[in-house]
């Protein structure tokens, strides 16, 4: 067994732990910029996971997907977020509606819940339980970030975390979808973020703030 093979095997066995760490840190982060950095880190872990899969399964397409993830999620999106935070000139805290302590407990409960949820499916799909639980935990915490953070930017970030979870689930269960479809999904995410960026400017210009919990004109 070569050194690369050992390294990939080690990484594939332990990457879930790192993902759980990013998730726990993300729910206690107080500043938008910290959350964006953590998202970038999380995507980097997933990139490494894609490459490790490519080495183990000898899939050429995995390198293309890995390069795309690296380029888009680790570099381009976080960069765009920092630019957006700068340009919007709004206060930089995330405006959480739960205290950090509560958030950690909720995130912990969600990780436990993910293990419980995948337990029955672990046997049928023949994948390591940890990996699948990490994917589900990302989906759950992404949703949690979306409902518990009041800033428009944090909702976008929560959506990205949720999307990371879905991507990870596809990766570990099926080694990813066909390449064309994968690229199409990336394209959709990019355009979606672009539109949300446009809307954050419009929200700020029409309402003078970015607190989406105060958008309550339409009811009933």
């Amino acid at each position: 067994m070569g050194l690369v093979a050992i390294a990939t095997a080690k990484f594939l066995g332990s990457f879930s732990v790192f993902l759980f760490l990013t998730v726990l840190l993300m729910v206690v982060a107080r500043r938008i910029s910290t959350s964006v950095l953590l998202f970038s880190l999380q995507s980097a872990i997933i990139t490494a996971e894609v490459f490790a899969m490519g080495v183990r399964e000898k899939l050429a397409a995995a390198y293309v997907v890995g390069a795309l993830v690296l380029l888009i999620k680790v570099i381009a999106i976080p960069y765009a977020f920092f630019r957006l935070v700068d340009r919007l000139k709004s206060p930089r805290d995330v405006k959480a509606s739960t205290t950090p302590t509560q958030s950690v407990f909720i995130a912990g409960a969600m990780i436990y819940l993910s293990y419980a949820a995948v337990h029955s499916f672990g046997q049928t799909v023949h994948v390591p339980e940890d990996a699948l639980a990490a994917a589900v935990a990302l989906i759950l915490t992404g949703s949690f970030l979306m409902v518990s953070r009041k800033k428009a930017l944090m909702q976008m970030l929560g959506l990205l975390v949720l999307e990371n979870g879905i991507f990870l689930a596809a990766l570990i269960t099926t080694f990813g979808m066909p390449l064309v479809i994968e690229i199409g999904i990336f394209f959709d995410i990019l355009v979606g973020l672009l539109l949300m960026g446009i809307f954050t400017f419009r929200i700020r210009d029409t309402f003078d703030h970015l607190d989406v919990s105060k958008l309550r004109r339409l009811r009933g």
């Binding site: 979306m146 428009a152 909702q155 959506l159 979606g192 539109l195 949300m196 809307f199 419009r202 929200i203 029409t206 309402f207 989406v212 958008l215 004109r217 339409l218």
Partner: peptide, 13 residues
């Protein structure tokens, strides 16, 4: 307008 921006954001998310 305020309503349109709110509806658009909600729709998108």
């Amino acid at each position: 307008t305020e309503g349109a921006v709110e509806a658009g954001w909600k729709y998108l998310i």
